[in-house]
Design a protein around this nucleic acid. Structure first.
Lengths: 252, 252
DNA sequence: ATCATAGTCGTCTGCCTGACGATAAACACT
DNA sequence: AGTGTTTATCGTCAGGCAGACGACTATGAT
């Protein structure tokens, strides 16, 4: 039976990216300014159309590289350069989510270490890291006073879902290390958890927990004083991806 | 700026369903026989095209109702009839996953109580509940000897992802009750966990855990002996959706 | 009456966590 | 050099929870 193109409605398929990082003790997301209607001039999540010959993950990795220069960390390549974590988040397909046409967006979540200022097609003023609080808050604005919220389309919902995914996933996986540089201290890792969860953690219990979980952290032998105070041991992320028992997020 | 249809490649968008239930102490999934090429005669997950005016969740709920007659349980309607749990699972978009054309499939996961025999367009021989082990195993076949594996397209991967989602989600949520009838006993709930995880659980510790978790179970006052032995209390699912601390899955 | 089956209540022990005291090693002052 | 500040790291203790398992209860089957 030949294929009948009239048997189904055509869709546009895009990937949108929730790229998270921790800057200045705050969980931040990458936002780009829209250059064309709809929502011209408003901030949005980076993204774009999936190409004809591309897998969804490939498209997301391509967009991520275009926006940030980040390569995706491939677990199959252990000795690889430090790269970002990228995973599929969810798919959004409300018929009215884009006023122009029927668009289904496959959102992806990327976790990246603190990066230099972003570039978007070479134009820095059209891309920025903004604290997720500002992006999700009614009338949110950056430190420069520019309004950054509300985001275009349904991107506030997508960002919110991505943040919630990240918050819950660092509980039971070693993903928090994706926010850290290749070598980091226990204190730096703790400040990642504190920024993502928005809580304060006891440094002593945190230290006991992460150093006592087999495979989570591997000491590199070096030390650093870049945080001030007593020199701290440097670690790399160990091979373990699942934490058992998990890291417990404190109650409200 | 007008919309330019040549700016993006057109996709077909479908929803595929991983419908899980527990039958005869085994985790089973709904499978339908394909009536046309490609993969004609092979078993596949139920699914279909998303319509022009439909949200993804609506499309999934419609397909679920068409295949099983199940309504989706809406948390906003507390006094509602018993219904299935339905949630988005993941999206699959490999360019070659369907040889006919570019198809992106938004897979959904549904959990249902044990149901009467399925119907697929009224033809029972073209739909069946099959243990997920048989569906995922090389050369798997049903009790009638008919081969049910491998599934068509990338449906083995989708089913595998859905099963893994269900296995992990009943750890920290009350979702296991979605496999049970409206009223059930602690033992019936335990057998759900045992079937989904494929392990044996201590009845005494399980009883202590589920009855001691506030909001998980609400006693209805009734009892039943349908399992034989001493009469057991009947419970309904309580309002709690998140279990804290979680139910622990025994080690290998 | 006896047995088999399933449900329910307790006990004990070990592990993990949260709370928090104490010490160590750097830097910035005076 | 001494003092204070900051961060890191080790230790202690009590409470909670889970795994192992004994004991008892209430039904139906033989």
């Amino acid at each position: 039976m030949p294929y009948d193109p009239s048997a189904f409605p055509p869709f546009a398929v895009t990937v949108d990216l929730v790229v998270l990082t921790v800057r200045r003790h705050a969980l931040c997301a990458l936002a780009v300014r829209r250059g064309e209607p709809p929502f011209q001039g408003r901030w949005a999540l980076p993204g774009g159309f999936v190409r004809d010959d591309e897998d969804l993950a490939q498209a997301a990795a391509r967009e991520l590289a275009e926006e940030t220069g980040l390569r995706v960390h491939d677990p199959a390549v252990p000795a690889q350069d430090h790269g970002a974590h990228l995973e599929q988040l969810a798919t959004y397909g409300d018929p009215k989510r884009d006023p122009r046409m029927r668009v289904v967006s496959v959102a992806h979540l990327a976790l990246a270490p603190d990066l230099p200022a972003p570039r978007a097609g070479g134009d820095a003023s059209n891309a920025r890291w903004a604290p997720v609080d500002e992006l999700l808050q009614q009338g949110g604005h950056g430190r420069d006073g520019e309004p950054v919220a509300p985001l275009a389309f349904d991107h506030a919902q997508i960002l919110s879902d991505g943040v919630e995914r990240a918050r819950s996933k660092i509980e039971y996986s070693s993903l928090a290390t994706a926010f850290c540089p290749p070598e980091f201290t226990v204190g730096e890792l703790r400040r990642v958890y504190e920024a993502v969860w928005g809580v304060a953690l006891d440094p002593r219990n945190f230290h006991r927990k992460v150093t006592g979980t087999p495979g989570f952290l591997v000491p590199t032998g070096g030390t650093t004083t870049r945080q001030g105070g007593r020199p701290a041991q440097l670690f790399r992320a160990g091979g373990a991806t699942l934490l058992n028992p998990p890291m417990l997020r404190p109650e409200v």
